[in-house]
């Protein structure tokens, strides 16, 4: 393997890693605020990407407007997921399994709807800085990918500030850690959950519009993104924004090294095997402690 190839694969891994990290971030936000795994996260990103594409390419709106529309669509989807799926399930005392099945169903529904309206083709979407490229040690990187990394880091910082410093952020945390206690403090737990899902949706929509210029939108992309984002989130401890990004980058790097050393065809086999291994060996993440036993 040449040096250039190595650098190239590291850059690709880094970029993909931030994408997984952003998806994982959305999962972490929903888990942190509602203790629910949203198996739709990758498909929320798909919605964001599709909306941005429709707005900018089909309707000819300026690119930044398309991006904003994509992000808002993601947020709206998150909110609707809570109102149309999570809330009715909880009201009927659905189990943890039911919640997962419902969001999985939602993921399949989004993918199927995109299939119905867009078909099986994939759609390109221009990125920030168009197709410009910068050189890094003979290897090259899209300007858009650099923006993706910068924006991801900014989102992590913003989320940290939100949870630590704002009243709403703290109320969100209180509502998830101790719903009954929060209720007595006058916190509306249901509204907090909707807010959490909306927030996770915004992050998902952002992930979608940022990833779309790099990988071309395709109706099936959501599920794999969810699983890889989930792996990232678990590595990071499942509820930590920074951890999710870190886990995503790690996963992305391992995956791209596997591509150069094994074969690109087996990329998803590697990442899915990693996901399973992480769940078994590191369920508390890289930084987490072991949970309490017995009872």
């Amino acid at each position: 393997m040449t040096f250039t190839l190595l650098i190239q694969s590291i850059l690709a891994g880094l970029t993909n890693g931030f994408v997984y990290g952003l998806i994982g971030l959305g999962i972490a936000v929903a888990f942190r605020g509602a203790r629910i795994i949203n198996a739709m996260q990758g498909d929320v990103a798909l919605i964001g990407a599709v909306m941005a594409y429709s707005a900018s390419v089909s309707f000819g709106l300026p690119m930044p407007v398309g991006f904003v529309i994509g992000v808002v669509a993601g947020g709206l989807t998150g909110f609707l997921v809570d109102r149309l799926m999570i809330r009715p399930t909880l009201k009927r005392r659905g189990s943890e399994d039911s919640l997962l099945l419902v969001t999985l169903g939602g993921a399949f529904a989004v993918s199927a709807a995109v299939l119905l309206y867009f078909g099986r083709d994939s759609y390109p979407i221009p990125g920030i800085g168009g197709n410009d490229i910068v050189d890094v040690f003979d290897a090259s990187m899209r300007v858009h990918a650099i923006w993706l990394i910068v924006i991801s880091l900014a989102v992590v910082a913003a989320l940290r500030w939100f949870y630590a410093k704002t009243l709403v952020g703290q109320a969100l945390l209180a509502a998830s850690i101790d719903p009954e206690g929060a209720l007595t403090l006058g916190i509306n737990v249901g509204r907090m959950r909707a807010l959490t899902f909306g927030l996770g949706g915004l992050v998902g929509g952002l992930a979608g519009v940022l990833v779309a210029p790099l990988i071309n939108i395709q109706y099936e992309m959501g599920l794999l993104l969810t699983l890889k984002g989930f792996a990232a989130a678990i590595l990071g401890g499942l509820s930590s924004p920074f951890g999710a990004i870190f886990g995503g980058v790690l996963l992305g790097l391992v995956e791209s090294l596997a591509v150069v050393t094994i074969s690109s065809g087996y990329k998803d086999v590697v990442s899915m095997t990693l996901l399973i291994a992480i769940m078994i060996v590191l369920p508390q993440g890289l930084f987490g402690r072991r949970g309490r036993l017995g009872g």
Binding site: M85, L101, V102, L104, G105, A112, L115, L116
Partner: peptide, 19 residues
């Protein structure tokens, strides 16, 4: 290609309303 959408919606509805 409408049946994948129908399946997904059926899954959601069945889990919520017809456990």
């Amino acid at each position: 290609d409408i049946h994948p959408l129908l399946f997904a919606l059926a899954l959601i509805v069945a889990v919520i309303f017809l456990p």
